[in-house]
Computed example of a mutant assay.
Amino acid sequence: MSSLFDPARVGDIPVANRIVMAPLTRNRAGAGYTPTDLTVEYYAQRASAGLIVTEAAQIMPEGQGYLDTPGIYSPEQVAAWKKVTDAVHARGGRIVIQLWHVGRISHVSLQPGGVPPVSSTDRVAVGKVFTKEGFVETSKPRALRTDELPGIVAAYRHAARCAIDAGFDGVEVHGANGYLIDQFLRDSINDRTDEYGGSIENRTRLLVDVMTAVVEEIGTGRTGVRLSPVTPVNDAGQDSNPQALFNRAVERLAPLKLAFLHVIEGQTGGARDVAPFDYEALRTLYKAGHEAGAWMVNNGYNRQMAMDVVASGAADLVAFGRPFISNPDLVRRLKEDKPFAPMNPKLLYGGGAAGYTDYPTL
C-alpha cells in the first residue's frame, strides 16, 4: 500500500510525497502581470509539497478575469516566473503552472481595449469579479466565432511553451470551475450551433484540441488537466448529464496519456455531495491503458481522509488548497499530526506580505 508521505512519479515528474498544493488565486502580481519577489518567497516557503500547482495564470491578455493575476505569455512574465521555479527547485520542490482563460468570468475594465470578454455564449454569468473598484458584476460576454477558436488553442500552446521556458516541471490546464473550457463543456452554458456546441462530442472538442496542442508542444509527461464535473461555482449550472459528459471527455483524453488528472469532488471549496457523481467510474476510464497517469483528488480532504484515499489506491495524490495558505509547512503538520494554523480571510486577495508570506512554521 502507498502512503500519503511516499514518493511517486507524476508523468515525468518525480515527487517526494503525495501531497499537492492546489492552485490558489492571491491577486498579488506586479507590473505587466508578473510574479514579484514576494511570490518567489511564498512558493519557496511551500516547496515541501510533493507538487505545487501555482495560482492560475492567464494564457493571453483576454484571458484575465480578476485584478493583479499573473500571466504566462510575455518574456517579462517568463523571466519573473523563472525566479519562482528556481527558488522552489533549490529547496527540492516540484512546480507546475495552471494555464487559465476565464472566458465570461471577467469585466470590461480588465479586457484589452475595454471590449466584452469572450465565451462559448453571449449570456452573462451571474457573479462578481475583483477589479480596481473592488468586487463588481461580470460583464456581458461575446460568443467566440468558430474561426477564432484555433487562436485560443494556439494561445494555450504558446503559454505551455512559455511555462517550460520559465523552468516549470509541467503545466495544468484549467478546465474547471466555470471558466472558458468549462463554458464549452456544459450544455447549461454552451448554446452554440457550430461544431463546438450541441452534442457531447462537440462540447468536448475545445478541451481535446487544447490538451492535444499542449501535449504536442511540451510532452505528455509534463501535462495535466483540472476538471470539476458538478461544481456550481461561477454560475456553472449542472450539465443535463454530467456523468456522460465527463466520462466521454476523459475517454477522449485517454489516448494522450496525461501526467495527471486533477478532479474536484463536489462544489469547489464547498459541499462534497452537492450533486451525485461517480468519480470512481471516471478514474477507471482515465487509468484504462495508462496506469502510470496520476489521479489527483481535491476538495475538503482532512488528514485521515487523505491517508485513507491514497492507502486504498483510490487516489495517487491529494490536493490541499486553503490549508497551504496559512501553513507553509503543511506537509510536516500532516505527517506529525499537528494542528493547522488558522487563515485570515481578509488578507486572501491583494495586498503585500501580510497574510501571504508571514504565516509561521512549527
Score class of each variant (00 low, 15 high):
residue 197 G to T: 08
residue 35 P to A: 10
residue 347 L to F: 06
residue 306 A to C: 11
residue 51 L to I: 00
residue 55 E to H: 09
residue 242 P to L: 00
residue 87 A to T: 01
residue 118 V to R: 08
residue 341 A to I: 01
residue 279 Y to G: 12
residue 293 G to S: 15
residue 253 L to K: 07
residue 158 H to T: 00
residue 261 L to T: 14
residue 303 R to K: 09
residue 85 T to F: 06
residue 294 A to N: 08
residue 85 T to Q: 13
residue 105 I to Y: 14
residue 170 G to F: 05
residue 183 Q to P: 13
residue 310 V to K: 06
residue 172 E to T: 09
residue 115 V to P: 05
residue 3 S to V: 00
residue 345 P to A: 03
residue 190 N to D: 13
residue 24 L to P: 03
residue 120 S to R: 04
residue 308 D to F: 00
residue 31 A to Q: 08
residue 278 D to Y: 12
residue 225 V to I: 15
residue 316 D to R: 00
residue 118 V to W: 06
residue 118 V to L: 07
residue 349 Y to T: 03
residue 343 M to A: 11
residue 119 S to H: 13
residue 246 F to K: 12
residue 315 A to P: 14
residue 353 A to Q: 09
residue 290 H to V: 09
residue 39 T to S: 15
residue 182 D to S: 12
residue 42 Y to N: 10
residue 243 Q to W: 10
residue 287 K to N: 14
residue 75 P to L: 06
residue 234 N to S: 13
residue 287 K to E: 15
residue 199 S to G: 11
residue 108 V to C: 07
residue 282 L to S: 13
residue 133 E to W: 10
residue 301 Y to G: 07
residue 303 R to D: 11
residue 21 M to H: 03
residue 262 H to L: 03
residue 208 V to R: 08
residue 17 N to M: 11
residue 288 A to V: 05
residue 111 Q to I: 01
residue 9 R to P: 10
residue 291 E to D: 15
residue 283 R to A: 15
residue 109 S to K: 01
residue 207 L to K: 01
residue 204 T to R: 02
residue 29 A to L: 03
residue 356 Y to K: 07
residue 148 E to F: 10
residue 51 L to F: 05
residue 236 A to D: 12
residue 326 S to E: 10
residue 53 V to I: 15
residue 351 G to C: 09
residue 343 M to Y: 12
residue 70 P to T: 07
residue 57 A to Q: 10
residue 194 D to R: 02
residue 241 N to W: 05
residue 223 T to V: 13
residue 56 A to F: 09
residue 315 A to F: 08
residue 271 A to V: 00
residue 22 A to D: 03
residue 230 V to Q: 04
residue 313 G to N: 02
residue 327 N to I: 01
residue 299 N to R: 06
residue 82 K to N: 14
residue 82 K to E: 12
residue 307 M to Y: 05
residue 126 V to E: 15
residue 91 R to L: 10
residue 54 T to K: 12
residue 309 V to W: 12
residue 20 V to G: 11
residue 134 G to R: 04
residue 134 G to H: 14
residue 330 L to I: 03
residue 205 R to A: 09
residue 340 F to Y: 09
residue 134 G to K: 00
residue 293 G to Y: 13
residue 103 G to D: 09
residue 338 K to Q: 13
residue 199 S to W: 04
residue 224 G to Q: 02
residue 206 L to G: 02
residue 301 Y to D: 02
residue 102 V to H: 11
residue 15 V to S: 12
residue 252 R to V: 02
residue 26 R to S: 11
residue 310 V to E: 12
residue 160 A to H: 07
residue 204 T to S: 14
residue 148 E to G: 14
residue 327 N to H: 06
residue 74 S to Q: 01
residue 347 L to H: 09
residue 286 Y to R: 14
residue 227 L to N: 08
